[in-house]
Design a protein around this nucleic acid. Structure first.
Lengths: 112, 112
DNA sequence: AATACATAATACCTTTTGGTATTATGTCAA
DNA sequence: TTGACATAATACCAAAAGGTATTATGTATT
């Protein structure tokens, strides 16, 4: 539960990086191919790719003079698990509320 | 699918803020109660709480001279949904892989 | 070997972020 | 009403983030 997710949440914090992940979900791309899909410089995109790599959300494979960037969806696991803690928490609250309502209904019935 | 999740991802990017959410999952707290659980200043915690509020992950209710901070787990919904896109994506890849293997096995059988 | 090309590395700039310290405001309680 | 207390607001600082421009490096291609 504790703390290996920092790199992932940091990587996801920037909208450009989230869009890069979306693009990479349609197929592997070189830096040039990624940056063609954005207005910013290739250098800026490269920085984003490094941060995504540090967060283990993508892997990079050198192929001649090109570097292929590949999505690693399993890298999102720690973030997903962290969020699930709260989703469970919320579900429990709803269950408790439901039980409380049912109990109340039962109580009412007893009054008749 | 597109873009209301920025506030949430921004809020989740800081480890102190994620810890605050964890603490609030055990019960509502005033600013003082939250900041007692951290080394940093009350003012710093207050700033984090504002960002969490902007991301709709908590709500704040004034009660006399105190302000009660309350977790809003539903605020995590957009982030969860965003991540689910990739979880689905990953599941599909696994399914495809599985089909491919099964197809290959079938092909092999046909050869006997 | 020479040149073009994809990427890396460096330097630099501006804005945002996370933090402290200090002062102000509003509310409770004697 | 006056003092104590919880929070707000402001000013300020250092570091990190996001970006550009420029130069360097390594790989293909001719």
């Amino acid at each position: 539960m504790i703390g290996a997710e920092q790199g992932v949440f940091r990587a996801l914090a920037d909208p450009t990086r989230r869009q890069i992940l979306m693009h990479l979900s349609t197929g592997d791309m070189t830096i040039a191919e990624v940056s063609n899909r954005f207005e910013v410089t290739r250098a800026a995109i490269k920085k984003h790719l490094v941060i995504l790599e540090e967060g283990k959300l993508i892997s990079v494979h050198t192929q001649g003079r090109e570097r292929i960037n590949k999505l690693e969806p399993l890298g999102l696991k720690s973030a997903t698990e962290w969020l699930n803690y709260f989703n469970r928490f919320w579900d429990d609250k709803l269950d408790n509320l439901k039980s409380a309502i049912e109990d109340h209904e039962d109580t009412n019935k007893e009054n008749y």
